[in-house]
């Protein structure tokens, strides 16, 4: 009898576990009925951007009744990934913050399928500077200044929201300004000045600058003083010259969505990317022109090894190009030495 009770209890327990637990069906989403303000005010993960808008009195845009606005909105997580906390956002000067907020807003409704499927398509923001949208037929993700849009086309009655993976930053006046203003590029800046490459960063063709940090140079005992004391005749220009790619304009994610099918030619060397497939597209290496000849087939390192560019460092935008931070050197100083026999 006791055994039977036990048996029945176990059976009943099993039966309760086998039950289908129906969840309460949520009411269908009311797309497009809420206004932009409703969406921002009622969504906690948008609170940092919303508070920034309120602080800069730009939130009146959210109540427009006209053509509407498209907001490339970094949610709170995105601000975190960009190293911006609630505190630091609160301490920003109102003028700067206003510029930053307006740089995330484009006039009119711009759903994803209305953006041309081309690389770095410029779109004017309310702040006047451009944001660059990249998309291809191969990859469904939309990228704004190299930053992925995590959630596309959040519809509102009077606008549209694309949720970004990171916050955008306002383009600097020139590539030179970015390098000059960043302390961790001081060795790189000194090198560019020493080799007469500094002035071209102010104007000229669109360019991509792969900027190694001071730490990267320190690994080879190069600092500002060492560079200022060095004899230019002892080194090839490529010690610093290979860091400037011109004419070129891309962010790191563009290497993934429009993978290079060939090398980027420099004066006497070239840059290769590690091709398509996996996460390896975001690697670049400097090699000589004859790197594929049979006698070189076993060699993998020439002037430097592969330099990997992580996803969270898409590059800082300037009016005349992009500066991409790199933590290792693509040309090791010794290999750029002029050889004398």
């Amino acid at each position: 009898m006791k055994l039977l009770v036990k048996y029945i209890t176990v059976c009943l327990l099993l039966m309760t576990a086998a039950c289908i637990k129906k969840q309460a069906i949520p009411p269908p989403a009311d797309n497009g009925v809420a206004s932009l303000r409703d969406l921002l005010a009622n969504n906690f993960s948008y609170s940092m951007f919303y508070s920034a808008m309120k602080r800069t009195s730009t939130d009146s845009l959210l109540d427009n009744a006209g053509e509407g606005y498209t907001i490339f909105l970094p949610d709170d997580g995105a601000f975190g990934r960009s190293g911006i906390s609630r505190d630091s956002l609160g301490k920003m000067k109102v003028e700067d913050l206003k510029k930053l907020v307006l740089y995330h807003i484009v006039a009119g409704r711009v759903p994803t399928n209305s953006i041309p499927q081309i690389m770095n398509h410029p779109m004017p923001t309310v702040e006047k500077d451009f944001v660059y949208a990249s998309s291809t037929s191969q990859i469904a993700t939309l990228y704004i200044n190299g930053i992925a849009v995590n959630k596309q086309d959040v519809m509102a009655k009077n606008g549209l929201i694309h949720v970004l993976n990171q916050a955008l930053s306002i383009p600097a006046a020139s590539v030179q300004d970015i390098i000059a203003a960043t302390p961790e590029y001081s060795v790189f800046a000194a090198g560019l000045k020493k080799f007469g490459l500094w002035d071209q960063l102010k104007t000229g063709n669109p360019m991509v600058v792969l900027a190694p940090t001071n730490e990267a140079y320190a690994a080879y005992n190069w600092d500002v003083e060492a560079i200022n004391n060095m004899d230019v005749r002892e080194y090839r220009k490529m010690a610093f010259g290979t860091n400037i790619l011109s004419p070129a304009f891309f962010f790191i994610n563009d290497l993934r969505i429009a993978p290079p099918q060939g090398p980027f030619m420099q004066e006497d060397v070239m840059l290769i990317s590690s091709g398509s497939g996996g996460g390896f597209q975001r690697q670049l290496k400097v090699v000589p022109f004859d790197w594929q000849s049979p006698e070189n087939s076993l060699r993998s390192v020439w002037y430097g090894d592969w330099v990997f560019y992580p996803d969270d460092q898409q590059g800082q935008l300037a009016v005349n190009g992009v500066v991409i931070r790199s933590q290792t050197l693509n040309v090791i100083p010794d290999s750029a030495k002029v050889k004398t026999n």
Binding site: I118, T136, A248, L255, A258, Q261, F264
Partner: peptide, 14 residues
């Protein structure tokens, strides 16, 4: 053609 960021090709052939 396919987009190629090094060569500046920015559209697909469609």
């Amino acid at each position: 053609i396919e987009p190629d960021i090094f060569q500046g090709t920015n559209i697909s052939s469609f």
